[in-house]
Design a protein around this nucleic acid. Structure first.
Length: 580
RNA sequence: GGUCCUAUGGUCAAGCGGUUAAGACACCGCCCUUUCACGGCGGUAACCCGGGUUCGAUUCCCGGUAUGAUCACCA
């Protein structure tokens, strides 16, 4: 068979050669050193989840903390993998960029916020186009070259034939797919048959003509792949930055590289794009690990240097029904959606920090040693990444969030809370517009030696501070059982009578003590504890009555400080209200 | 079923041939305290199983077992 003729028959329009494309996308640096180029390659479904964020964070850190010998920063770019037209969702790219931007992850290059269907140049950077759907001619040029070299061929198998082959294989308990003898029919088509099929308008795909690359027939992916014979089966070894040495049988499947519509499959697009865009590190979920043999073969056959793979672990959770670990699913698990965190009002910084603690086992230690340091100062390493799937732990997130929020100044927190409320609690938002008031509230008890850590996420914060706003103030707890209704009234009556808003904290508490003693309660809680029969209750119970009157609840920060923020009028009014 | 990843307390995890097997979260108790939180102290709780290698295995090797992943003209 004349491969050149076949190539021309299949791709008459394609006139560029791989060499020309190589020249169009030269090396990014003359002296790259250890600089890293990563990419995020989402399909534009518009659904960004925690797993994406997790991976994106690895990409971003890896690239941005690396430098060339000349001090230039590594590059993190966005490539849209829209080879499956069924998946496209309107506005998805914008959503992706915005969602990640919310968490402080920004791209240096690639697809931009502009609408790709409107703007000619919806991306920036010299290694585009960054939409795979716009790269058709590039892929085809490389496939054409593969055909010339006899390493790819058209396959006219229909869906029915494919299904028949699969059924046969399943019945025989063989590996499914097109390989070995199952590939022969298509591989052995003559030029005339192919011509006739095409003339008849038959639809076809392009398949890779798989062969054992271990013989060293090609460039060897620049020494990054090692081969080994295990009982007659050829295995290859690749060093994964997260998992270390990974060994698998070499690929023998004649996988589809170009679909019937001329668009490449993920496998082919990955190899071409990451090579041409000069990606050094490919970060992707472990679900891709099993297709590594295909990619290794493609890199070998095309003579490209293999990038460094980083196969990340999948985020898991315990399934309530089965009790087993399982991959987080976007259908069942709302906490997988990034929107969930926005709605609950988890601060992006907290989510980021949580992700880092499960991403790098030594992060927590580093954070403990450097509580004030910027998160980007942490030196992220793939070696410290766990290769097992971590369970998502909401408790841990909350714990981390407390500390993260403590490091954020109250006025910034006020802005954050207001912004959150505008979107998710619009009725309450106007109340929060009084920033000075809100800031005081949020700053309560944060500057002591042992600062309070009451604030976790926006929704919780709002509930926590809601009593500061009359519109949300309700008495939600009963007075303690040690205090009779009569006493409660008496306590509040006397409290109101003696109340002086200008009292300092100790003067204020002295008055509480007086009331406590006068009504037969223990001024020292310990006395009541030791001799409960001598008292009705203790100062704790008396204080609780005041708490409930002023805040509607028994648990809160320091009462005196709260009253100072609430203001005299509100305090008096709330107490009078309860006395009736 | 084939192939591959993984395997330390409830969870996340240090460990990389000899340790009283760290630490964090959660849980429990005590202390601090006008409540709660914070903080401090203490506690319960772990090396999947079976063979090897070795003077000695949580650690190395080989088998199981289990979890997970993957076997598309989806990514």
């Amino acid at each position: 068979m004349d491969n050149n003729k076949l190539a021309e028959l299949l791709f008459p329009e394609i006139d560029k050669t791989p060499q020309e494309y190589e020249a169009m996308y030269p090396a990014r640096w003359e002296e790259p050193g250890d600089v890293i180029v990563t990419r995020l390659g989402p399909s534009p479904t518009g659904f960004i989840h925690l797993g994406n964020l997790y991976g994106a964070f690895v990409d971003e850190r890896l690239a941005h903390q690396s430098r060339t010998p000349d001090g230039e920063q590594g590059i993190f770019y966005l490539r849209i993998e829209d080879t499956d037209d069924k998946r496209y969702v309107e506005g998805a790219v914008e959503t992706i960029i915005r969602s990640l931007g919310f968490f402080g992850i920004n791209f240096d290059e690639g697809a931009t916020m502009e609408d790709s269907s409107v703007a000619d140049d919806a991306s920036n950077g010299a290694y585009g186009p960054y939409y795979q759907s716009q790269r058709g001619p590039i892929y085809q040029a490389f496939v054409k070259d593969l055909v010339r070299k006899g390493q790819a061929y058209p396959c006219f198998l229909t869906e029915e034939e494919l299904t028949a082959i699969r059924s046969e294989q399943e019945a025989n308990k063989e590996t499914t797919g097109i390989y070995g003898k199952y590939a022969e029919k298509s591989r052995n088509l003559t030029l005339e048959e192919i011509e006739a099929n095409i003339a008849a308008g038959k639809s076809y795909v392009m398949r890779l003509k798989s062969s054992d690359t271990s013989a060293g027939s090609v460039n060897g992916a620049s020494g990054k792949v090692k081969y080994e014979d295990r009982d007659g089966v050829t295995y290859f070894h690749v060093n994964d930055a997260i998992r270390g040495d990974v060994a698998m049988p070499v690929n023998d499947q004649d996988v589809v590289i170009l679909k019937a519509n001329g668009i490449p499959t993920y496998h082919f697009a990955h190899v071409i794009d990451d090579h041409l865009m000069r990606t050094t590190h490919v970060v992707r979920g472990e679900e891709w690990l099993m297709s590594l043999p295909i990619h290794v073969e493609l890199f070998e056959k095309l003579g490209f240097e293999l990038p460094t793979y980083c196969h990340t672990a999948v985020l898991m959770k315990i399934d309530e029904e089965t009790g087993n670990k399982r991959k987080l699913s976007k259908r069942k698990d709302p906490e997988l959606s990034l929107d969930y965190y926005r709605k609950e009002g988890y601060h992006p910084q907290a989510v980021k920090e949580y992700l880092l603690t499960i991403l790098n086992s030594n992060f927590e230690e580093w954070r403990a040693a450097n509580p004030e340091a910027d998160i980007d100062e942490f030196r992220f390493t793939t070696e410290k990444m766990s290769s097992g799937g971590a369970l998502f732990d909401l408790d841990k997130l909350r714990d981390i969030s407390k500390d993260v929020l403590l490091r954020i100044p109250a006025d910034e927190l006020a802005d954050y809370l207001l912004e959150w409320a505008r979107e998710f609690k619009p009725n309450a938002a106007p109340l929060l517009e009084d920033k000075e008031y809100l800031t005081q509230i949020l700053d309560l008890g944060r500057h002591d030696n042992k600062p309070r850590k009451d604030l976790i996420y926006a929704k919780q914060i709002f509930d926590f501070i809601s009593y500061f706003y009359d519109e949300y103030f309700i008495i939600e707890e009963r007075i303690p059982e040690q205090v009779s209704d009569e006493d409660a009234k008496e306590i509040l009556k006397r409290y109101l009578e003696t109340y002086d808003h200008s009292d300092d904290q100790s003067q204020w508490f002295e008055k509480i003590r007086t009331i406590t003693a006068d009504l037969g309660y223990a001024v020292k809680p310990k006395d009541y504890k030791k001799h409960p029969e001598d008292y009705k209750g203790s100062v704790a119970h008396v204080s609780t009555v005041v708490r409930i009157a002023v805040m509607g609840r028994s648990q809160s920060p320091d009462v005196w400080s709260i009253q100072q923020i609430l203001g005299e009028d509100r305090v008096r009014e709330r107490i009078s209200q309860l006395i009736g």
